[in-house]
Design a binder for these strands. Structure first.
Lengths: 222, 222
DNA sequence: GAGAAATCTTGACGGATGTCAAGCAAAGTT
DNA sequence: AACTTTGCTTGACATCCGTCAAGATTTCTC
């Protein structure tokens, strides 16, 4: 019996799949099936972050896991479903990245500094994931299959940035002069630019990113 | 004798290659060899703009030209050299896109309006080329081979934007508050964001792009 | 512990891809 | 007109790809 069905492919797989709930297998709280899917997704993300979408194969993903290449088709119907699952998993990871500093900062200056620092930190420590994101977003401009998930993540990121800039405005005692979607586009451009410089080996990339964010954010007010 | 040598691969191929200059073939002012390279580059760009880097094959490029698949290796050493040539050709095309309106505009308001309109126009009429650019820039984050050319184009685009914003500041009677490289990153983010929306079918994408540019540019001053 | 269900490995398939070599066709040279 | 160089086509190659099926292995159930 093949466990991969088209019905499952439609689920939001970040939530545990309801695969064994009909029968009462109480082996583990989280189903092993979902464990493996996540495990493979993590291996896939590592591979994608290293090679990019164009040169990532299912065999290479399996090589970066502890399984053989055939297992991918046991847990995913095809390559697109695997990558889609990866993308959704990735999304769940990075949504709350700045919520801590938004909640904790007590002044607009503190928020700005901590936000800029956090941006620099994630650029440096998670560069492969970020370049993968830009890669997949570019892919979605060609391939409609990826577009829904990419747009969903883009909206999530926009909300994330929106919470930052709106709290920043609030703490500064001013309103936002630019709407949130534009703020996101602006900051995303600055981040992507800095990421490319960083990956190129530009040693000022992180300082430049920090300086640019500190420079730009105040101009979004009033 | 194979005309493709590693020495030629290093040349800036937008300039005519010095292939027959030793012997005086005065057939045409522009060498036929470079004509074909350009011809193939145009076919390749059309294919790349349609399919993206990941799914563009040499055979598909040849299919979009009037030649057979083997001819690619007569004019280019390998796939990377072809794509590199394409990228350089592309660069030469788009450098002067805004120079006209920079020279002609007599007020900061006129410059801003015409610049925003031109951005919208090129987004709509040359969307495949623009998404290809974002695709290749993402590729360069993974593949070092593409990085020098991508960075060169990025610098050229930055200069192009720099001429716009500096002239805008001059006409407005103010100085730029943000350095040119940051201005480029900001506007690039806005443009990329609008392009994705446009390709998704968002019918407000072009109006949004225009509005955002008109909104943002004044904030780069003083 | 035997049988059943699940998980995983292995190997194979058809197809696509980059590359290259051999040879045909056209153009140029003398 | 014979010969040479250049341009291009055809077909082949090794390799890699996604996918799948058959069977071995492990785990679960009773």
């Amino acid at each position: 019996m093949v466990p991969v069905t088209s019905a499952r492919a439609e689920e939001v797989t970040v939530e545990p799949t309801a695969r064994h709930t009909a029968r009462g297998t109480r082996r583990t709280p989280v189903d092993k099936y979902d464990e493996r899917r996540t495990q493979l997704a993590i291996s896939a993300l590592a591979t994608l972050g290293e090679l990019g979408y164009a040169r990532t194969s299912l065999r290479e993903i399996a090589n970066n896991s502890e399984f053989s290449h055939g297992v991918v088709h046991y847990y995913f119907a095809n390559k697109v479903e695997l990558i889609t699952h990866c993308v959704r998993y990735y999304k769940a990871q990075c949504v709350t990245r700045y919520d801590g500093l938004v909640a904790e900062s007590t002044s607009h200056a503190e928020l700005l500094t901590r936000f800029a620092d956090k941006l620099v930190e994630t650029m440096m420590t998670e560069a492969p994931m970020h370049r993968l994101w830009y890669d997949l977003r570019a892919q979605s401009m060609f391939e409609e299959q990826f577009r829904p998930d990419v747009l969903a993540i883009d909206a999530t990121l926009q909300d994330m940035i929106g919470r930052v800039v709106e709290r920043y405005a609030e703490l500064a005692g001013h309103a936002l002069a630019i709407d949130v979607s534009t703020c996101y586009a602006l900051l995303d451009g600055v981040f992507e630019n800095a990421l490319l410089a960083y990956l190129t080996g530009d040693e000022h990339a992180s300082d430049d990113l920090r300086a640019r964010v500190v420079e730009v954010l105040p101009r979004l007010l009033v």
